[in-house]
Each structure stands twice: as C-alpha cells, then as structure tokens.
C-alpha cells in the first residue's frame, strides 16, 4: 500500500514538473523572447488560463505527501526551511507578476510586473532544481530522521552539505535549461509570427545545453551517491529509462527541425518524465537518503502513515483525481490552438 502511494506522489510531482514546468520555462524566457507589449501579452495569454491549475499540482502533491508520508513531510519541510520559505515568497511574486499586470495599463507598471514574473520564474526553477539535487545527494539526517540544511556551507557535497553545492547547482542549471527548453517548445506551439521565429532561434542552443548537462549529470550523480545504480544493476527493466531520456531529447530536436510543434513539445514532456522516473526508480525504497549513515534514511517503510489512513485515502484520491483530470481536459481543450497576439482577451 505504501509503495502505491510512493508511485502516486511521484506521479503527481512529475505532473507538476511537466505542467508547471512549461509556464515556469515560459516565464524564464519572457523578457528575452517576447519584446513588445503585444508579444508579452501573447506569452501571458498562452499560459494565463492554465498556470494556476498547473501550480495546484504542487499543492495537491504537497498535501498528499503530508498525508501519506507524514515523516517525510515533517522532516524535509523543516529541514529545507530556508529554501522552502524562499520558494513560497517567489510563488507570491510570480503570481502577482502574472495576475496584477492585467489590472494596470501603464507601460512602466507592465514592465515592472513582467520583470517580477520572469525573475521569480528563473529563481523558482533554480530552487526546484537544487531541491531535486538535494534529494539525490542526500541530507545530513540524524537518527531521529530530522535535519537542517543551511543555504550553503562550503559548496561541497560532504558530510555537512548546504542546500547549494556544486552538485545541486549543476542540477539547478540543468533545470533552468531543461525547463526553458520545455517552455520554449510550449510557446512555439502556441504562438505565431516573429515571436514564434525568435523562440525557434532561442531553443536551438538550449537543446545542446540540455544534452550536455544531462550527460554530465549522470557521472556527477553517481559520484555523489554511488548506490544510485543499485536498482539499475538489479534488473534490466530500469534501462528503459535512459532510452526514454535520449528518445525524448532527440525527438524534441528532430520534431522542432521538421516543424512538428506538438510532437516536439510532447517529446520534451517525455524527457522530463523519464528524468524524474529515473530518479524515483533509483531512490526506491528510499524517500530521502542520509548523507551519512544509511540507517537514518527516510524510507517508505518508516515514513508511511498508518495502514487504515492509507487505504481510506485511496478511495477519495482516485475520485478526486478523475474529476481533476476531467477539468484539465476541459480547460486545455477550450484553450487549444494558437493564441492571437492581436486579441485583447482570452476569449
């Protein structure tokens, strides 16, 4: 039962990364890719009706994590206290950047809100990437499964690491490039004209950067956590994941060259899904590894809520998710197709 919840929470987080990933990536490119007020409005139209719903996946995943694995929630949220609070502040900045802009028509204010939105998006991606790196590298868990990481120590992933070190910064840079690529491919699919052409130019070097950084991340990850390959060594099923990573990245590149915008974006989704599955598969059954003694690991077994709580939750969770997916299908199909730069409202 606890393993089912591990898969479900991982699936919710992956959905979050894939969905909110494209609007975060669009935010990261917002100032560079969209130059005029019309173009910036086009970017915001492309993500406007869906970004809030995408972000709800983070809240729903957080709530589900809290309920299914209270120890993981309690330990990691208090342990990552400072970076997590910064994530919260950035989420506030980003939301007002998107939502308050439309209430003011003066160009100075619009430039201000565009800047807030874009910078907050970039910083959020950096923190999310670093968080991902932290989970792979491990944190200094004590015997009671508590820990506290400062923002940084000596930037080395040793026994007493900070949230930021060379490895987690590598993960952060990879995240910035990967989600910018993802966001660019989404925007290419949703826009036309000069903005579309500029995005195509921007995405080309991003492909190369993502490929190189992905390649570099593998030996780096094994260096900081040698046991990462154990699950892969145990059987051949796991090797489908690196194949999917390569297929996703290659697909994104080839489909973009051929002008198949939808498939390019879907390939990028596959790439992100494969990268996250790769990490989830490698960590299982550990939820949060200890940088020191493996006995202090937070695992599925020691973190799960009581069995009766877990089975009760499965019922409402399934119903709720089915309804949520239906909403997403409705909203995305209502807003399908390219946004027109000239139009003044979504509708």
């Amino acid at each position: 039962m606890a393993t089912v919840w591990y898969a479900l929470v991982a699936l919710m987080l992956a959905t979050y990364v894939i969905l909110d990933g494209f609007d975060l990536g669009a935010g990261a490119l917002h100032l560079i890719a969209a130059r005029s007020d019309e173009e910036r409005r086009a970017v915001l139209h492309a993500i406007g009706p869906v970004w809030d719903g995408n972000e709800v996946w983070l809240l729903a995943a957080g709530g589900t994590l809290f309920y299914a694995f209270p120890l993981l929630y309690a330990s990691s949220f208090s342990g990552f206290y400072l970076p997590l609070n910064m994530v919260l502040w950035l989420l506030i900045f980003r939301a007002i950047g998107i939502e308050f802009r439309q209430h003011i028509s003066e160009s100075v204010w619009r430039d201000f809100f565009d800047g807030v939105f874009s910078i907050a998006s970039i910083l959020l991606i950096i923190l999310f990437g670093a968080a991902f790196g932290n989970v792979i590298r491990g944190v200094p868990l004590a015997a009671d499964h508590t820990f506290f990481v400062p923002l940084w120590t000596n930037f080395l992933p040793g026994a007493n690491p900070g949230a930021l070190d060379w490895y987690t910064l590598l993960a952060a840079i990879l995240a910035v490039c990967a989600l910018s690529m993802h966001g660019a491919l989404y925007l290419i699919m949703k826009t036309e004209g000069a903005l579309n052409a500029r995005l195509r130019r921007i995405v080309r070097p991003l492909f190369a950067a993502v490929a190189l950084l992905t390649l570099a991340a593998l030996p780096a990850s094994v260096a900081v956590r040698p046991s990462l390959l154990d699950n892969y060594r145990a059987g051949p099923t796991g090797w489908i994941i690196p194949v999917a990573v390569i297929a996703g990245l290659a697909g994104a590149f080839v489909f973009t060259r051929n002008g198949n915008e939808r498939n390019a974006f879907l390939s990028s989704c596959l790439y992100l899904l494969a990268m996250l599955s790769g990490a989830a598969f490698a960590l299982y059954p550990v939820l949060l590894p200890a940088s020191g003694d493996p006995a202090n690991n937070v695992t599925i077994a020691n973190a799960a809520a009581g069995p009766s709580s877990l089975s009760i939750g499965l019922i409402w969770w399934s119903i709720g998710m089915a309804i949520a997916v239906a909403y997403f299908v409705i909203v995305y199909s209502m807003f399908r197709g390219k946004v027109s730069v000239a139009s003044t409202t979504h509708m």
């Binding site: 719903g53 709800v56 809240l59 729903a60 957080g62 709530g63 589900t64 809290f66 309920y67 939750g313 409402w316 969770w317 709720g320 998710m321 309804i323 949520a324 909403y327 997403f328």
Partner: peptide, 11 residues
Amino acid sequence: LAMEGVFSFFL
C-alpha cells in the same frame, strides 16, 4: 488538507 487540494483547488 489534501482533499482541499484535490477537490477544491483544481475546481
């Protein structure tokens, strides 16, 4: 709390 996310935030 999780039900709030799943049932009302998505809606």
